[in-house]
């Protein structure tokens, strides 16, 4: 019985050392350490032996059992290490040659239109100052586009905003339908429909009847802003626009506020930024070193009054920005027509 034990030990060890894969370890364990293993059989046979022999063989049998278990542990560890090493080896034939510069498998990339990106960025900036988006129609009554904004008929200001009229569209009030020339028309609606305090931005497509060139199109985007409350001042307007300029154009860009005229504001403001190309010296891109960015001002009392807001109680500021100019300046786009030309070679760049 003793010899049987020693033979078993040698055989089991030999088989264990031949094992190369972790999956074969389990059958080895069942064979030599399991409930129905040879070793178990030997231990069961102990009962037939004398007490002395039983003691001696039993002790050896337990030794063999722990030796085998130890061997299994060692082998398991060994194989784990080996397999970890193995996974670092390269099976891929191409990578084995080491050319990691081969292109990756392409994943489709899509992009937002640059104008949408600009609108999103601006909305975010103004939202952080409490301005929420307010929407209004593109096809608009002449009243909201002009009269409500203090632009009477036959006023020269209308010449700069040559208008597309909708064929045979007249309201029961006698108003005529047009394509809005500015999103300020939505401000006219905001003062009429909302109660102060008001803080809104309005953006969207606008249309003007004019010759198309690199900086003018018959369709373009505007963003307008409007704040109405007690105690709003031109200082607040400056602060709001400075904050916009700082965040959109960067911390160091110089900003200028000068007097300008728009019929729906008084005092009127034009904001310009320093030309990045000539640094204020004056060049072909700018006007004497400055680039006009937006028109603004304190909402004219007449505009508030028409909207049913008492200008003696409330003050208000308004601003309007041509959208395309912003990405044009940021990316150096020299022709506005590219935005609406659908060319993927253009759209892929943003």
């Amino acid at each position: 019985m003793r010899e049987q034990l020693e033979e078993l030990l040698i055989k089991a060890r030999g088989e264990l050392s031949d094992i190369n894969e972790a999956k074969d370890l389990e059958s080895w364990r069942v064979r030599y350490l399991g409930r129905k293993s040879e070793l178990t059989n030997i231990l069961r046979g102990l009962a037939a032996l004398s007490l002395d022999e039983r003691r001696a063989v039993g002790a050896r049998a337990n030794e063999v059992k722990s030796l085998l278990a130890e061997g299994l542990n060692q082998k398991t560890e060994e194989l784990k290490k080996e397999s970890a090493q193995k996974s670092l080896r390269v099976d891929d034939a191409l990578l084995a040659r080491g050319d990691i510069t081969l292109p990756g498998r392409p994943y489709p990339v899509g992009r937002l239109h640059p104008v949408t990106q600009t609108l999103n960025e601006m909305s975010e900036i103004f939202a952080s100052m409490g301005f929420q988006v307010f929407d209004g129609p593109e096809v608009e009554w002449d009243y909201y586009n002009f009269e409500a904004l203090n632009i009477p008929e036959e006023h020269p200001t209308r010449d700069d905003q040559s208008t597309f009229w909708v064929d045979h569209l007249t309201s029961h009030k006698g108003w005529k339908g047009l394509l809005r020339t500015q999103t300020t028309s939505v401000s006219a609606r905001a003062v009429e429909t909302m109660e102060p305090p008001i803080r809104v931005i309005e953006f969207g497509k606008c249309y003007r009847y004019e010759a198309t060139d690199a900086t003018h199109g018959i369709m373009f985007y505007h963003i307008d802003g409007l704040a109405v409350d007690k105690g709003i001042t031109m200082a607040d307007l400056k602060g709001t626009l400075y904050e916009f300029a700082r965040r959109y154009f960067g911390e160091d860009r110089k900003v200028r506020f000068r007097c300008d005229f728009f019929p729906f504001v008084e005092p009127g403001v034009e904001m310009a930024i320093e030309c990045a190309l000539c640094h204020g010296e004056g060049c072909s891109l700018c006007d004497e070193g400055w680039l006009e960015i937006l028109g603004a001002g304190m909402t004219h009392p007449e505009v508030l009054r028409r909207g049913g807001i008492d200008p003696d109680v409330y003050t208000s500021f308004a601003f309007g920005i041509g959208v395309e100019r912003l990405p044009m300046l940021r990316y150096g786009v020299d022709d506005m027509r590219l935005f609406y030309g659908h060319d993927l070679r253009f759209l892929r760049q943003f």
Partner: peptide, 22 residues
């Protein structure tokens, strides 16, 4: 506006809106 533009818009301070957000 006459007063502001002759004295200069630069003389107007710059403040942030401080009324509650609507």
């Amino acid at each position: 506006e006459e007063v502001a533009r002759i004295i200069g818009y630069d003389e107007i301070p710059t403040t942030m809106l401080d009324s509650p957000i609507p």
